[in-house]
Simulated assay, not measured.
Amino acid sequence: MSDDSTLAGRIQIRLNDLHLDATPTSLEAGLSASAIRNILEGKSKSPRNDTLVRLARVLKTSVDWLGENRGPKELDSSAAETALPPRQILPPPNASISIVPAPRMLDDHINVLGLAKGGADGRFQFNGDVVETIPRPDFLRGVVGAYGLYVEGDSMFPRYKAGELVWIHPGKSPKREDDVVVQLHPDVEGDPPEGYIKEFRGWSPSKLLLWQWNPAEEFNIDRPLVKAVHVIVGRR
């Protein structure tokens, strides 16, 4: 019997009540595939309020019960709906940015960050590790927070090949046709953000406008999901 005194326990109760599995329920809520599993396993302890709202909707319960164990536990589908607009559902992540210390201004080396997983769509997730530290390129001398990463997936082929090393300048403003690393806000506060490598096309009032090469098509993301856009300034 699951314990209703914790968020993880209450989520498990509703999954059991509705005969649901964690991964498809996360995706139905418009969250990352691992969002519910991370909460159940104690990896994510403080979900944002909009994440709780989305979970309450698919678990057919109230936000009050899910978040604080008060209020009704069971709601029908119509009552579980809220005025919150549906979250844009993106392809599975292929990059999540880990939080790593910024290198010193005069450091002659730079960190290459590791990826936890990669997908053909170009979305990536950093695993939080520095896979290697290598000499800093001259064009990144004095750039705080600059980093490198190895490309995963084929969504930007032939522009980039899987396994190719690229250099990122986090303080440079993107211009049209720059290649960029797009960081997304995590589903759960404190989790590392996920991201994409795409070509920057601009901003609309509601979207970040991007382009990918394989397949060649527009790739747009709702602005509220975007945490940062970092420009790729070189490769090796």
Results as ranks from 00 to 15, higher is better:
L59Q: 08
A29M: 09
G202A: 07
S155N: 04
A83I: 10
F126N: 11
G122R: 05
E194I: 00
S62G: 05
D154E: 15
G118Q: 12
L66G: 10
R176V: 11
K207C: 04
V130F: 04
L209K: 11
L149E: 06
G42K: 08
P215S: 09
G190L: 01
P101C: 08
P170F: 02
E164G: 06
V144A: 13
E81D: 13
L208Y: 03
P224Y: 03
Q88A: 12
S155D: 08
A116H: 10
A146W: 02
D107F: 04
G42C: 06
V100C: 04
Y196H: 12
I39A: 07
F157G: 00
I221V: 15
L210A: 09
D129L: 13
I197K: 02
I134L: 15
V144H: 09
G145L: 04
G122L: 06
P93T: 11
R159A: 14
V58P: 07
T51C: 11
F157A: 12
G148Q: 08
H169K: 08
I89F: 08
L184C: 07
I134G: 01
K73V: 08
P205S: 12
P85W: 02
E199P: 00
A146E: 02
D121V: 09
N16P: 00
V143H: 03
L140Y: 05
G114Q: 09
I89W: 03
K207I: 00
L225R: 15
W65S: 06
L165R: 15
I197R: 05
I110Q: 07
I36N: 02
W213L: 11
G114F: 06
G142H: 14
Y196N: 02
V229E: 02
G145E: 04
N127W: 05
L208C: 02
I99M: 10
P224A: 07
H19P: 00
E177K: 15
L84A: 12
D129Q: 15
F124C: 05
D50C: 01
S2K: 12
F219H: 13
V100E: 11
D64P: 00
E194L: 00
P24A: 08
V231G: 06
E217R: 15
R37V: 05
A83L: 14
R37Q: 14
T51S: 12
E132V: 07
E28A: 15
D187S: 07
R57Q: 12
V180E: 04
G71R: 09
D107E: 15
D107G: 10
L210P: 03
Q125I: 13
L115S: 13
L27H: 03
A8G: 15
A116R: 14
T82M: 04
V182E: 01
S98N: 11
D50R: 05
H230F: 04
R159Q: 13
S2C: 05
P24Y: 09
W65Q: 09
K175G: 01
K227E: 13
N214A: 07
P186E: 07
R57N: 10
G119S: 14
P137R: 04
D107A: 15
A22I: 04
W167I: 06
L15E: 01
F200M: 01
Y150P: 01
L40A: 03
I11G: 03
P72K: 11
D107C: 11
E41P: 00
P135R: 11
V131R: 12
R70G: 03
